[in-house]
Design a binder for these strands. Structure first.
Lengths: 195, 195
DNA sequence: TAATTATTTCTATATATATCGAATTGTATT
DNA sequence: AATACAATTCGATATATATAGAAATAATTA
């Protein structure tokens, strides 16, 4: 769970293409751009279902929509497809995934050493790297996009360790969470947008 | 459902890679070959689960097993991965899928015209191409690999039309089914192994 | 503004499959 | 042979998601 960027991006790409109807959509759009209606009738699917599939393909950049009248013309982004294919071909794409797995395994081991069966933190690691693992673990208890009062934050942190102050301070210090002014408002930092 | 060879092969390939743990396995095997046990512990998964994933990857030729002692060494078939990537890049792979969809749509239309709501055949098309669509539709009522007596065959065909003789004769004539000697033994022909 | 049409979102359901634990198979060693 | 160990298969469960239908949204036309 350390750095999933490579992993999850590739995974989402493959998942997008791992459905018979979505693959068909890509095949059709390779020839001509279509409206949702056209696709639905070609595939013998409901329009809502077709729309859903298109949304999934769009999410990974495989298709794009161009509005025209009250139609949307969906078309294939061939460059995305090619870029992904190139990426899989590249020598270092797979080893990178392997590195991420090593990091995951490391995290698991640290977690095992510093938490009990109930997931509570038994001790704070002195080593900075391990301490960050613990912090990332704790951060997962918060929902992305939600704002918490300091009281709520403490309540959640208490499930992990009685020293909520240390946890709270370091979550902010290591920029896993952010705090409004001096006040009581906390939220998760989206790690993806961070360098 | 006319000629799914391109479709289904690509689909199975993407499905094989559309799982986080299988993608991780590929990543690990890109560096080193492993036993099931090793992979299971690296991924923090049960051995049976790991085995299942490896079987799926092997099915599309992405990994291969080499027996050694009582271990199996699984390794990545990088050439399969490259071949698939090349294929996606090739200009005609996607249009081919589109053709298959057209064929599917054609089949559906024929079926609609010559069957009723309950799936019974209302008339036999005069046109050869359409007649074959009907035959392929009927053939789906039989299980691959199972041997049927003539009586059983007739029983099944009766669900589609009272003229079981015509259906039976043409299923064999168009090589969708095969018959033992002059006798009462029928079975589906595996279309994949046919030219 | 009302009405029409295309698309999306929401809700519910059905199907596929990832997962585990137990039993089984297969291979090598004693 | 008998035993030990790795791997697979089987049975059951839980989760993800493909699907359809209804309601909501957006955009155009009357």
């Amino acid at each position: 769970m350390t750095d999933q960027s490579n992993q999850s991006e590739l995974l989402e790409f493959f998942k997008a293409l791992a459905d018979a109807n979505r693959l068909k959509i890509v095949g059709i759009l390779a020839r001509q751009s279509c409206t949702v209606e056209e696709l639905a009738s070609l595939l013998d699917l409901g329009e809502s279902t077709t729309s859903h599939h298109l949304a999934r393909l769009a999410k990974v950049g495989l298709v794009s929509a161009r509005p025209d009248g009250h139609y949307y013309h969906y078309s294939l982004q061939t460059d995305t497809l090619q870029a992904m294919a190139q990426r899989v071909l590249s020598a270092d794409a797979l080893p990178k995934i392997a590195q991420e797995i090593d990091a995951d395994a490391y995290d698991r081991k640290v977690l095992q050493n510093f938490t009990d069966e109930e997931g509570r933190i038994t001790a704070f690691p002195a080593q900075d790297k391990k301490f960050q693992v613990i912090l990332r673990y704790v951060a997962k208890a918060f929902e992305p996009g939600v704002r918490y009062t300091e009281k709520q934050v403490n309540e959640i942190l208490l499930r992990f360790n009685k020293d909520t102050a240390t946890l709270r301070r370091n979550l902010v210090g290591y920029r896993l969470m952010e705090r409004e002014g001096g006040g009581g408002c906390y939220w998760l930092v989206d790690q993806k947008t961070e360098a």
